[in-house]
Each structure stands twice: as structure tokens, then as C-alpha cells.
Design a protein around this nucleic acid. Sequence first.
DNA 1: CCTCAAGTACGAAAGTTTTCGTTGACATTA
DNA 2: TAATGTCAACGAAAACTTTCGTACTTGAGG
Lengths: 144, 144
Amino acid sequence: MPKRDAPARKRDAAVRKRDALRPTDAELEILNVLWQRGACTVRDVHQAISRTKPAVGYTTVLKTMQIMSEKDLVRRDESQRAHVYEARLAREQTQRQLIGDLLERAFDGSATKLVMQALSAQKTSAEELSTIREMLDEFERGES
Amino acid sequence: MPKRDAPARKRDAAVRKRDALRPTDAELEILNVLWQRGACTVRDVHQAISRTKPAVGYTTVLKTMQIMSEKDLVRRDESQRAHVYEARLAREQTQRQLIGDLLERAFDGSATKLVMQALSAQKTSAEELSTIREMLDEFERGES
DNA sequence: CCTCAAGTACGAAAGTTTTCGTTGACATTA
DNA sequence: TAATGTCAACGAAAACTTTCGTACTTGAGG
């Protein structure tokens, strides 16, 4: 008869805590606001999101930000009545994490392939191409 | 009393059908096998995955592949007893889709920023850098 | 002190993803 | 043909995500 006993599968909250949590879509949307505007209250974030995305309730944003606080994706300053939230990681750090993740999951770890697809995913302008070229120069000086 | 009435939220399966579904983690793992080995039976995929990832049941893989078939992520040939599955999209297409998605969600649409983080996400070797440089040359010739 | 507005906290529901046990159909072979 | 093995289908549980209603708390004005 079916009855698997308490699988205790997957990462549990405690384990998850510090190991490079991948933000979900809704979380990333909130992080984008925090990165753009710096430390914010829930109301700030809610209003910012409402501008582009019409219908999402205040408490939905609040709840999500509370969860993000538990996951340690954001830091919360409770000294004021309206708590102030701040992204724990810099945007670039999270971006690298997301890319690293995608690299592993879909590109077999090959940054070259990823860059190649990134450039063909959308037409890249001449200026962008030369920006990237300069970047490569710097990388070559810095690393190898 | 709390009781929101049948929100019918989110994309429903029918709507989702054709519009560039983002494969989930488990789905992507299966797609990786299909891209690498071509058309496969469930058993093939299960064995391939078992090699790197120890404990995931056969029926789990089967069910996931059935769902992928419903979502049209894979095509299924039922003419044999052991159905044969094949990725519907080429690897590169899916990669571009995933990148496009990430670009929007976390990079404000800037491919340049993404490339920059991709290169710093992992140390890129000199050979890789020159490969990318060649790629840029081609792009410049081809496009602008 | 009382009320009102602005906040947070709580909990639950619905949606989505991942997991797998069980069943029954169909082959192979002893 | 009966036993054994392989497979797809089904259904459901558990984890994860998103959503929001409701209740409680607190500070400001009256």
C-alpha cells in the first residue's frame, strides 16, 4: 500500500540557509527594486512593482519579503515601524550566481557557449560588441 | 472569512502550451540527456541520470517525461512498446530561450552585462578568451 | 482615552514541481 | 500456459512558490 514514510527530502530551510540560494522569479523582481533604489520599505517596493506590473497585493509583496528575510536574501532593519529591507548580496554577485547556475544546468559549464548564445539571443549592437572586446582585453591582462 | 473564489490565476496548461515554456530543473536534466544521446527511451534516460545522480526512481523520470510531452517540450514516438522520446527544440534554441529569460529577469536586458558576469563567474582560460574573440569577429562581419 | 491609518504577522489556499507506489498491459521464456 | 520481467499510466503526497484575507499592533490626532 502507498505510504512512503516521512521522506524528509530535499534541502530543508536550515541547510538551505547559507548555500547560495537561487532567488525565485517573484524574489528576483523584488531584488531588482532593491538594487535599483537601495534600501526600501515594503511600501516602496510595492509601489515600484505596481508601476510596471498592475495587480499584485501589498501583503503579497510583504510576505515574499518576509520569506526572503528568512532565506537571508535580504537584510531587514526593524528599528523603524516600517521595516527597511536591503539586498544582502550585490547585484553582480547574484548575477554571477544565476549565471553559474545556468552554466551548469544548461551549458555543461562552458562559458564560451553561453557567451555565444547570449550574443545571438538578441542582436548585439556594434557598440556593445566593442565594449565586450575591451572587456576581453582587460580580462586577458588581468588573468592569464 | 478567507475564501478567495477560484482565482484561475497564472498561466493554465492550455495557454502555456506553445509559448516558450521554461523547462524546470528536472526537465532540463532530462533534456540534457536527450540532446547528448539523441532519441531515448525512459530507461535510457533514467540510466544516464543515475550515473551522475544516485537516487531518483524510474517512475519519477517517466512521469516527468510524460509531463514534458504534454508541455510539448519533447516529442514521443509510441510505435514501440518502449516509447522513444526526443527533444522538440535544439539545445541551442533552448539555451537562447533560457538566456533571454535570465537577461530580462536579472540583467535588465543587457547582454553586455551578462557576458561580463559570465566571464567573471568562472575563470575563463586564454583559449576560451580567444575563441570568444574570434566569435566576436564573425559577429561583426555578419551583422553590423 | 478613542479612533483611524499604516504597518507587520499569521495562516491558509491555490498553483507548480518533484517524487514514487501501484496497477494493469504486454512480452518473453521456461 | 504460467511465471517473470518490462513498461506506461495513474494518482497522490510532499516540497516549493505565489497569493492575499484577516487579525493584531502601534503611533498620531482628536
